[in-house]
Each structure stands twice: as structure tokens, then as C-alpha cells.
Design a protein around this nucleic acid. Structure first.
Lengths: 193, 193
DNA sequence: CCCAACATGTAAGGGGTTACATGATTTT
DNA sequence: AAAATCATGTAACCCCTTACATGTTGGG
């Protein structure tokens, strides 16, 4: 159900067409909650039906048209209510740790390849988040800039601060994963003669 | 699709009835891949149909009966093949970080409650894993003990070593989450006057 | 004129959650 | 006799993935 709230979060800063939602999503909230366009379009329609968004049709060129979604007061309220509710936690479901627990079944080279892939994946993610933090810190991130413009002065430190805090957390998590996989490589060397 | 491999992993150590699978699952592989009984029973039947398991009916009391599932050579092969395949990574989908990024929308007390819940959840998880590591290290974990008995001497260090490695990774991840949430609490104090 | 970007979908299937459902057996 | 445990399911629903599908517009 979080997709809905991810979309509301995005639309609190400005009204967007479905396509714009998808594009902006990928560059902002999609870093913490991925969704493909095939999921976004129908969800926007459902949210309109549920009164959280109102869609306004606009002409696009001669024949085309597009629909711009505005968040409604009910949408804002639903988002705020979600933000004030403590999440409950999904039980563990983690394929890499499942695999790691039974690594004696893999060929040593396959085991090493898995650990290297883990390092590569999390390094790349960490790099992206690092770039995001830099863009948030120097206010060059366009979504943030637009949000800050519209916000009263006293809220600006919060808006930027919480986002930086979020991505820093993800960077540290990625670093922990990298460190773990490095130890995994050492362990494989030690155990597989 | 990982549930199937989690079940194969469990059944490589011994044949089990559906109910036993569920109980053992909760105490071992379920720590990294949770599944409810309503998912396990049908999956076992599908795996039997697919030739990965063979089920043997046994009487249980006067009228009752139960089915004990044995892993087949095809099941072993399927598990080994999965272990030798590099996983591909699911895109980020993380409700707590989604929420953290927009924490300016929450009431300060709700924001603090969320961070405290995060700390409580991960502390409890870390504690469980810590117990698991201890039970693996002193070989008092029954599932491990049974597995070690059946395994040739030269494999025993691997079997225990990889499991300890796995849970240690999860403990460190939990500690990183706790540390992050602590910083979150400080940030809330700083930003919400 | 072509191509990239803009715009919006449908449809099938997989995996998982939650709730409901039933009955036998063993233990207290 | 009651309660806990053993035993095994079904059914509805939700969310997400993957693949397919179609047409428009603006820029080079």
C-alpha cells in the first residue's frame, strides 16, 4: 500500500501528469520505493476514484491530451494520517541471506561471484545515494528546490534535513552490506581449501 | 520463488511432514525467509508434483494420517543449481525510508514514536539473531546438530561457518538501523523546536 | 522524415497475506 | 473434560512483475 503514499508524497509538491509522475518518481521518491509505469498509471486512476487526487485534462498538441493530477485536501489528509501512523514491520524475507546460510552447497567460484555481485550492486547504489545527498545539500536537486520555494522559511531545514538523513541511512546500510560481503569473500577463501 | 529454495534447504537435512516443516522452518530458515503455514502446505504439494519432493503417507493415531516429504535427487539438483546462480536484485522498496524522507509531515511525537519503534524492532531482531549465533557456535542448535551428524567431517566447518556469517551480517545490519534511528531522534529534537 | 520523448494503457501470472475452516491426538 | 498441539487445508484479495500494445508530438 506504500505506493499510494509515495505518490501522494510526490504530488504534495506540485500537480503532475501521469508521465511526469513517472519521470519525477524515478528521480526522487523512486530511490526509496521503486515502481514501474504500469503500476503508476492505474494507481493514479484509483486514487482519483478514491478522491485523493483530482485529474484535470489538458490538450496536448492538436489531437493528444493528458491528465494532470492535483492532490486534494483529502489526499493531503490521508498522507498526513499515514505519516502519523507507526508502520508495522514485514517479516524477514531476504534471498541473499537465505543463500549465504547454505553457501556450502555452491561451487566456491559461484559463491565468490555472488559476493562480488553483492559488493558491485551496493557500491553502485551507494554511489547514487551519495550523489543524491550532494544534490540535496547544495540544493541543486530540482524536486527539492521546487518544494523549498513553495514552503515557508521555517520548514526548509526540515524538508532538506530529513531527506539527507534518509539517504545517509541508506548509504550506511549499503556500506554494511559491502563490508559483510568482503568478509564473506575472506571466509570462502578460508573454508574452501 | 525463494520459498521453494528455502524449503529445499530445510529438507536437505531430513525428511519432514508438512507440520514439521512449518515448525522447523520458523526456528531456522524462517529467520531469513518468513512464510506462513498457508503458504507452505500448498508449496510442498506443488514441489511434489514437480518432482522435487516425494511424499510418503504415514498413519497418525487411529484415524489420522500425515505425509512425510523427502527431497528427491531432482530436488537436490534444483537446489544446487539455484545456489550456483547469481541472484538479481530487487529494486528498493522500503517503507521506513520512504516515511523518513517526508518526516516533516508527521507530528514530532509521531516521528519520535516511529524512530523508537524502529529501534525496538531491530533490537529485538538483533537479540534473536545473537541467540542464534550463540546456539550455532556451541552447536546447541538442534537443526544444525542433526545436519552436522549427517555430514562428512570436512564439510562441518563450512556448514556452521556460513550460518554464523549470515546471522552476523543480519546483526550488523540491525545495529546500523538502530544507530540510524538514534540519529533520527536527535535530528527530530534539533529540527522540531 | 525519422526518432526520441511524451502519453497511457491492458492482460496474464506470480507470490504473498489474511482470514477462515476442520478435525485428530496428546497432554494436563 | 479441556486445552494445546498436530495436521492440513481453502478462498479472497492485494500488490507487483513482465510483457505487450498503441498512438502523438516535438526536435533535429
Amino acid at each position: 500500500m506504500s505506493l499510494r503514499y509515495a505518490l501522494l508524497a510526490l504530488l504534495t509538491s506540485q500537480p503532475l501528469t501521469g508521465y511526469d509522475v513517472f519521470k519525477h518518481f524515478e528521480q526522487s521518491v523512486g530511490y526509496v520505493w521503486h515502481a514501474p509505469d504500469s503500476q503508476i498509471y492505474p494507481e493514479l486512476r484509483r486514487m482519483e476514484k478514491d478522491g485523493l487526487l483530482s485529474g484535470v485534462e489538458e490538450p496536448w498538441g492538436k489531437k493528444g491530451k493528458k491528465k494532470r493530477y492535483h492532490i486534494t485536501p483529502e489526499g493531503v489528509e490521508a498522507f498526513r494520517a499515514w505519516m502519523n501512523t507507526t508502520l508495522d514491520y514485514a517479516r524477514e524475507r531476504d534471498p541473499i541471506h537465505l543463500k549465504a546460510a547454505y553457501l556450502e552447497w555452491a561451487d566456491p567460484e559461484a559463491a565468490r561471484a555472488q559476493m562480488r555481485a553483492h559488493i558491485a550492486y551496493h557500491s553502485s547504489r551507494a554511489q547514487q545515494w551519495q550523489n543524491m545527498v550532494a544534490a540535496l545539500e547544495d540544493r541543486s536537486n530540482p524536486t527539492l528546490a521546487r518544494r523549498l520555494e513553495a514552503a515557508p522559511e521555517e520548514d526548509r531545514a526540515k524538508i532538506a534535513g530529513y531527506k539527507i538523513f534518509t539517504y545517509e541511512g541508506m548509504i550506511e546500510r549499503a556500506k554494511a552490506e559491502i563490508e559483510w560481503a568482503r568478509r564473506g569473500l575472506e571466509l570462502i577463501d578460508k573454508l574452501e581449501s
